[in-house]
Amino acid sequence: MEPNQTFNFELVSPEKILASEPAWQVTIPGEEGYFGVRAGHMSLMAAIKPGVVEVIAKEGDAPKKIFIAGGFADVTAANCTILAEQAVNVADLNAATIEQDIANLNDEIKVASDTTQKSILQKKLAMAAAKLDAAKAA
């Protein structure tokens, strides 16, 4: 295999295809740990936890960082498809606004009466916390 071979990277959200481009290496925050994908990777299906996906278009390039709110990766030798419900460029994340969101969610959880509502809010809170980590790391 040539060292610089690329494969097709796709990032799909329920609303549209967010990215479809050749990539040299993609790092994915798998449910069981980070893993890197390059061309010729074995067929793999993995669950992704909320975190940052790093896409490197060709060797030596700076990685493009995308925060995704969990999803699934479908990897074959020539393709890597990521299904994500939410994806944001890390550069677009703003730590201050996310902190505000977290504060708001905490308030809402305090006043939420029924358990159903509460569990939904708690899920949102966990998501916002992961987003904040990503924003701070960037």
Partner: peptide
């Protein structure tokens, strides 16, 4: 592609239990 064996991470049952709610959303 299907003929090549797939690796699942975590194992199939776990992935399935994660996929199902997402699939409902879809």
């Amino acid at each position: 592609e299907l003929t090549s064996p797939y690796t699942f991470e975590p194992e199939e049952e776990k992935i399935l239990s994660l996929l199902l709610p997402k699939n409902l959303g879809v």
